[in-house]
Amino acid sequence: MSAQDPLLAQEEQFWRALMRIIVALPRSLDDDLLRSTGLSLTEYVVLMNLSEAENQELRMADLALATALSASRITRVVDALQSRGQVVKRRFEGDARGNVATLTPEGLKRLEAAYPIHLASARKRVMDLLDGRSLPTMARQFEAVADKLD
C-alpha cells in the first residue's frame, strides 16, 4: 500500500478512536488528579520523572525531553512546583546557562500521595477496558510507534 492510499475501514475505525483517546485521555487523567490531589497531570509527570532520576534531579532540558514539554512550559511548571516547595531549581554547575530541577522531600510526599489516585484513574480509564491477553502485543506495537516519534 502507498502512504497516499485511503485507510481501510478497520484502519479508519482504529485511527479515529486513537485520535479521540489522544485528546480525551490526558484531560480525564488530569481531572481525576486535580480533583483528588490538587496536582495537574503535567505536575505529576514532572515529579514522577524527578523521583526516578539519579539523585532525584534532572537538567531542565532533560526534564523537558522526558515530559515532552517545551522549554518555556517546563520552566513554568517547575517554577510553580518550586513556589510550593516541591522542587528546587538551581544553576547547573557544569554550564552556567543551564538549570537543574531537584525533587524535595515535600515533592516526593505529594507524588506518593497522588500515586494511588493516578493508578486508579489509569486502571479505570484504560487498563480495565483492555483485553489483558493482547497487552504484550499492543505494548510492543505502541512502543514501536513511540520509538519512531522520538
Results as ranks from 00 to 15, higher is better:
Glu143Ser: 14
Met48Gln: 14
Pro136Tyr: 09
Ser72Gln: 07
Ala80Glu: 12
Asp147Gln: 13
Gln141His: 03
Ala71Cys: 00
Ala113Thr: 14
Ala114Arg: 08
Arg84His: 15
Pro6Lys: 11
Lys109Ala: 09
Leu58Gln: 14
Thr104Met: 02
Arg110Ile: 00
Gln141Trp: 05
Val45Ile: 14
Leu119Trp: 03
Ile21Ala: 11
Ile22Thr: 10
Phe14Arg: 10
Leu50Tyr: 02
Thr102Ile: 03
Leu41Pro: 01
Leu63Ser: 07
Ala120Glu: 09
Phe14Val: 15
Glu11Pro: 01
Lys109Cys: 03
Thr42His: 01
Asn55Ser: 15
Ala71Val: 06
Val87Pro: 09
Lys109Arg: 12
Glu12Leu: 15
Asp31His: 09
Leu33Val: 05
Gly38Pro: 11
Gln82Pro: 01
Asp62Met: 03
Glu112Asp: 06
Val88His: 07
Pro116Arg: 10
Leu39Thr: 07
Ala113Leu: 13
Leu18Gly: 13
Met60Cys: 04
Gly98His: 04
Thr67Met: 03
Phe142Glu: 12
Leu18Phe: 14
Ala71Gly: 09
Ser72Cys: 00
Leu8Cys: 00
Val87Cys: 06
Ser134Cys: 01
Met48Leu: 14
Ser134Tyr: 09
Gly98Arg: 11
Pro136Leu: 02
Glu57His: 04
Gln56Ile: 03
Lys109Thr: 05
Ser134Lys: 07
His118Arg: 11
Arg140Thr: 05
Arg73Ile: 06
Gly94Glu: 13
Leu129Glu: 13
Arg123Ile: 00
Leu130Ala: 03
Ser72Leu: 04
Leu8Thr: 09
Glu12Ala: 15
Ala66Met: 10
Leu33Trp: 04
Ala68Tyr: 13
Ala96Val: 12
Pro105His: 03
Ser83Thr: 11
Gln4Ala: 13
Gln56Thr: 06
Met48Arg: 14
Ile117Val: 15
Leu33Thr: 04
Glu93Gln: 13
Asp95Met: 04
Ala114Val: 04
Gln141Met: 14
Leu25Gly: 02
Ser83Lys: 10
Val145Lys: 02
Thr42Ser: 08
Asp128Pro: 00
Arg16Gly: 07
Val100Met: 04
Leu33Ala: 09
Ala64Arg: 01
Ile22Asp: 13
Gln4Cys: 11
Arg59Ala: 12
Lys124Leu: 01
Phe14Thr: 12
Arg27Asn: 05
Val126Met: 11
Asp32Ile: 04
Ser70Lys: 08
Val77Ile: 13
Gly107Ala: 09
Asp95Ile: 07
Thr104Phe: 00
Glu11Ile: 03
Gly107Leu: 07
Ser70Cys: 02
Phe92Ala: 15
Leu81Ile: 07
Glu52Trp: 01
Leu18Asn: 08
Val88Glu: 12
Ala114Phe: 04
